[in-house]
Write a protein that binds this DNA or RNA. Structure first.
Lengths: 338, 338
DNA sequence: TTGTATGCGTTATCAC
DNA sequence: GTGATAACGCATACAA
């Protein structure tokens, strides 16, 4: 920087001002400085700036697993949003491991990131004291709610109700649900199940426990297993609401492999609207939980907290908009000329 | 740090030594220092250390798109390997955009990362001068080879030959290939096509141009489109070698939706062995390109270069081992009791 | 085995 | 509008 200053015939402070878009600089000066920067190929040392300002321009994103399509897509969106506001994202994987989730909060790449976007999967409401940290934190999802942190969530109940209503609207009556977590009262599973139940009851249909397939992990294989168990027990639904798309794809496979037609015999809808869904065969109807909006809100909120630098009087909760995205797995395949 | 020193009754230098595992410290001193650190809840300021040492402990990983399963899984592996050697990974997405790939090389989060693992998709051999950078760089893939950088690749030709031989070994003779890049002489497409051709020729079967489906992008949809075009033109293969798993899954869908049985009528094998493959229906045979080894090699190599600090006399190329992973899409579905 | 002094490249302060 | 100078928190010589 001092070389640039010398070449431009100004002080380092002026160079710094130019680099930081300080408004009160004579145009000529700015041009000269910019020119010198160009000539010398000067690059700002982010580390030194970080030392001086106490900020690094880095934010952490802690997710269970990048390999899960939903989180890969979330990371994608967060990175894009962060870039908009000049932040860089450091991804940390917790593998849904309780210890690692705690570690991320206690000592994330602390002193390396300015704040953290945290998507927990193992921690629960009892752990909410862990969210009382001394750095900006935005929590995603529905596992923990605490006055101590900002929150970005989706409308799990309403979205699940809408998905179920979509199936009801097609005339389906024996609507199974796959991915339930028996006995849980928090988290996405419980909320989505609540929405499912609401829709059924509003339609004058009760919840049939035999139509609820449990599966702790929401993976393709567990989805396939859950529907297989249900069918093997003699219970045959005319529609399935899977609590996420991975489960739904598992369900799809299992149905097809048994010669059950989708959606003629059984309509299927998932949740998350990951890219997989568009390319499944038949393409999978799903609920888009507003991933882009979630990413934008989370980054925006965190950014604000970082800039404010002072602990907020009140924490915020932002809820994203959802949308039902009907595709072939409920509407049917387009007629194909033989 | 000076607070810790004061409490422990030593100098900051001693604290620094302890924190950095400097070996020659009296045990009692170390214990006192560690104790003070604990008491004060002191955390090392990574930024200040970075300023002083010129290293940040961060490495960049530039990939086309995190949403593509292969790259999500690669990132996963790289993050895990980097953690082993105390490095943190900063992911950058290029979106296979030429300009962004150039930007990543010219000015990555430069001065923020100690080195870069770069997986190009748009740059080609003519751009190899861009690889002459003044920071440690490990290039992945087969698009560019340059004496100026370290390289980690997979055995594209051999692996493709093995995949094709697997199909030949099952008695298939009209083996289609999907994902070709007509006219290209570099990159994965050209190499894998070469392996495919080698296997066919060794078996005394020539390459039938009608059995080669082109598709620039290796996505599910392009795979489906390529095989559809081939079938519509009246060409019916008895096996398909798709140049990656996404293409293969597209092929699978298209075949199934036409009522063509896999593998009885057409066997299908992919390349990459992503998790999708295991859960496809039928599960997809594939070639595992040694992703874990690629990640380990890339991180190891980069780490060495960073530690060495001096430009290496010679650059290295490491080639990962591959493995054919046969599954239902070539071996057949297990008998299912009706 | 430990301490002292110095500087890494930037921004903040305050003077001009 | 711009400049001089002191931090930021640490590691490195070198001395002791």
């Amino acid at each position: 920087m001092s070389d640039v200053a010398k070449l431009a015939g100004v002080s380092v402070k002026t160079v710094s001002n130019v680099v930081n878009d300080y408004p009160y600089i004579r145009e000529g000066t700015r041009a000269r400085v910019l020119d010198s920067i160009q000539k010398l190929g000067y690059q700002l040392n982010t580390t030194a700036r970080g030392l001086r300002t106490g900020r690094t321009g880095l934010i952490g994103l802690a997710v269970p697993e990048l390999k899960l399509p939903y989180f890969a897509e979330l990371a994608d969106s967060v990175i894009a949003e962060a870039e908009q506001v000049g932040l860089t994202v450091l991804i940390e994987q917790t593998n849904s491991d309780r210890e690692r989730e705690i570690a991320v909060l206690r000592d994330p790449r602390r002193r390396l990131v300015d704040g953290l976007i945290f998507s927990p999967l193992a921690l629960g409401q009892d752990d909410r004291h862990l969210l009382e940290v001394d750095f900006p934190l935005v929590v995603l999802g529905e596992r923990i709610f605490a006055a101590a942190a900002d929150h970005v969530t989706m409308q799990n109940v309403d979205a699940a109700r809408a998905a179920t209503e979509h199936l009801l609207g097609l005339g389906r009556r024996r609507i199974a649900m796959v991915g339930g977590h028996r006995g849980e009262r928090i988290g996405s599973a419980a909320l989505r199940e609540a929405g499912y139940a609401e829709a059924l009851e509003a339609a004058g249909i009760g919840v049939d426990p035999g139509l609820i397939g449990e599966s702790g992990l929401w993976h393709r294989e567990t989805g396939a297993a859950a529907i297989a168990t249900m069918l093997d027990s003699g219970t045959v639904p005319d529609a399935v609401f899977a609590l996420n798309d991975a489960l739904a794809i598992g369900v799809l496979r299992e149905l097809l492999s048994r010669g059950i037609r989708v959606p003629q015999d059984v309509a299927v809808i998932g949740f998350d609207d990951v890219e997989d869904a568009r390319f499944a065969y038949p393409s999978l109807s799903s609920v888009s939980p507003g991933r882009a909006q979630i990413a934008r809100s989370a980054v925006g909120l965190l950014h604000r907290r970082i800039v404010e630098r002072t602990a907020p009087a009140e924490h915020e909760t932002i809820t994203a908009e959802f949308e039902v995205v009907p595709r072939e797995s409920t509407l049917g395949l387009p007629a194909r000329p033989a």
